[in-house]
Design a protein around this nucleic acid. Structure first.
Length: 519
RNA sequence: GGCGAGAUAGCUCAGCUGGCUAGAGCGUUCGGUUCAUACCCGAAAGGUCGUGGGUUCGAUCCCCUCCCUCGCUACCA
């Protein structure tokens, strides 16, 4: 039986269209999911949208539509972008799904009945005109951050979760499972800022807005974000307080929750504690990935520097953008994206190193052998290092992927592609072609190249799915073994450029026109 | 303020528990080649490894001071 692998992204908040920074997460998850499938895992890959809350209620009002209509629109937009990015999620959950709502109510009730949740009062600084509570450090000059007027102490009835009851168990779990929170620095932040000082009880219901899942035994309350949003990971695969589905039993606990670094607290403190209270297993790993910055600024609409994934795809193509975000994002630090950098990466890596290698190799196979190439086994010492590197490639990629270093995994493959270009220069096929007695040697050289490219293309499938298929088609093979083989027989098709080189100046003009047309 | 991370070539970054002339990619300059998408290959230039101390036979890597950048510091998500 196949080993299961459950990976999730965070559910995207439907307050507006996600930019490339948000889109990075789904692409990263997709690369990992595709990789695991190739490795033979039974992968379940979930994503979706978080659709309740006050902010959405307000947005809907501003747009003169109902909250449901509003989230229907944004959720569709988000799903469309995920699809444009060619991501292979298995299921897309929305927190407005009926089953989710029902399960959340049951979970809330169960936690209440077992006294993990109790009714109390929420005390805080309240701005009456804005009808909102704020914390001390949200205030601007001691005044309401929204309207600038004075705030006052106020109380509101609310349900609370006794987090402190579980904090020792959670601390223990984090110590026993060093892989639970990644990267490491995030773990320290959680321990030092929250666990060590002691957890405060968490407010889990609201009465100040209505766009949420009602608490069924106390309907003036709606379930506040935590229990609503976080439980998506289990409700959608069949968790049920009264007995969960077989699917749930098969896939839970999740192997990896991939999330942005901004929501680590919810996933490494609140979520595990909710699960402990329910008596369920904890996810194996939570990875808080870094952010994608535009230049050195965080993207925001007010700065006017927002880049959307669908626009980038229109301008550069889906695999180019997948490549950029996967390759350029560091493991722990924030990465950045500019049009200049995207163009440089496409030209140097995709067009020159990869595209041109495939093109020149296939051209030679056509020119010297009418496209039909087999291994004639005429080796020389020049072949040694290339064959050694291809031989080790799958293992190296595997190691990097295991530690979620996706960019480094891709780099390993490109290392071999670079090596292949060098190999052509060293073996000089065009010289061999002039000497009839070197025909056998020439064919071995071309074979080594074709086979190396096949291995690389196969390994590139998780990152550049369309391009990988194109390469394999040009090679005329459907062999997707990740090891170098000695005995394939190639009958290649006509070469066709994979990525056009981009003229930076012309492209920038095109981009400016494109953006000004959108305004 | 507290806690945490980081500061290495023009740019983006590698450098495991201290040890050969500090590395890679991109960019720049020069040279080579022609199978190929003016591509590819090679070479060079370019770093007092943030500051000032200390430990050591020896420190980019350990300790301390200082300077700077960034993140977290609980109910927006």
């Amino acid at each position: 039986m196949k080993e299961k692998y459950y990976i999730s992204t965070a559910i995207a908040y439907t307050s507006g269209k996600p930019h490339i920074g948000n889109t990075y997460e789904i692409v990263l998850a997709d690369a990992i999911a595709r990789y695991k499938r190739i490795k033979g895992y039974d992968v379940y890959f979930q994503t979706g949208t978080d659709e309740h809350g006050e902010k959405i209620e307000i947005k809907a009002r501003e747009n003169n539509v109902s909250p449901q209509e509003y989230v229907d629109g944004v959720a569709a937009e988000i799903k469309a972008i995920w699809d444009i990015m060619n991501t292979s999620y298995d299921r897309f959950i929305r927190t407005t799904d009926k089953n989710h709502e029902k399960q959340v109510q049951k979970i809330f009730k169960k936690l209440y009945e077992q006294d993990d949740i109790y009714k109390g009062t929420y005390e805080g600084l309240y701005c009456t005109p804005c009808e909102s509570f704020f914390t001390e450090n949200q205030l601007v000059d001691g005044k309401c951050p929204d309207c600038g007027r004075a705030v006052k102490q106020a109380k509101e009835e609310a349900y609370f979760f006794r987090l402190s009851k579980y904090q020792d168990r959670l601390m223990e779990h984090i110590k026993l499972h060093p892989e639970f929170i990644r990267p490491e620095s995030r773990k320290k932040e959680m321990i030092n800022n929250f666990l060590k000082p002691g957890l405060q009880d968490l407010c889990v219901s609201r009465t100040s807005f209505t766009w949420g899942i009602p608490v069924d035994f106390d309907p003036k309350h709606v379930v506040y974000v935590w229990i609503d949003a976080l439980t998506n990971y289990i409700t959608n695969i069949g968790y049920d307080v009264d007995g969960s589905s077989l699917e749930y039993k098969k896939y839970w606990p999740a192997d990896l929750h991939l999330i942005g670094k901004d929501i680590i607290r919810f996933h490494t403190i609140y979520w595990p504690i909710i699960l402990m209270a329910l008596g369920e297993e904890l996810p194996k790993q939570v990875f808080g990935h870094p952010w994608m910055l535009f230049g050195s600024d965080k993207m925001s609409k007010s700065k006017g520097n927002v880049i959307y994934a669908d626009d980038l795809v229109k301008l550069f193509g889906v695999d180019a953008i997948r490549y950029y975000v996967l390759h350029e994002m560091p493991f722990a630090n924030d990465g950045n994206i500019t049009y200049d950098l995207v163009i440089e990466r496409i030209n140097s890596d995709l067009a020159n190193i990869l595209g041109n290698l495939v093109n020149r190799t296939i051209s030679m196979a056509q020119k010297y052998f009418e496209g039909r190439v087999r291994n004639t086994n005429v080796y020389t010492s020049l072949d040694k290092s290339l064959l050694l590197e291809v031989g080790e490639l799958a293992k190296k990629v595997d190691d990097k992927m295991d530690s979620l270093e996706v960019g480094a995994a891709i780099e390993e493959i490109f290392q071999v592609l670079r090596k292949s270009n060098k190999y052509i220069d060293e073996t000089m096929p065009w010289i061999l072609a002039k000497d009839e007695t070197e025909k056998g040697r020439l064919e071995t050289v071309i074979y080594n190249l074709l086979e190396t490219i096949r291995v690389c293309a196969t390994l590139l499938r998780p990152y550049l799915p369309d391009t990988a298929i194109k390469i394999l088609n040009q090679l005329g093979t459907n062999d997707e073994d990740m090891e170098f083989k000695q005995d394939l027989i190639y009958c290649v098709n006509d070469p066709e450029p994979l990525f056009q080189r981009i003229d930076k100046i012309k492209k920038m003009e095109e981009i400016n026109t494109f953006l000004s047309n959108k305004m």
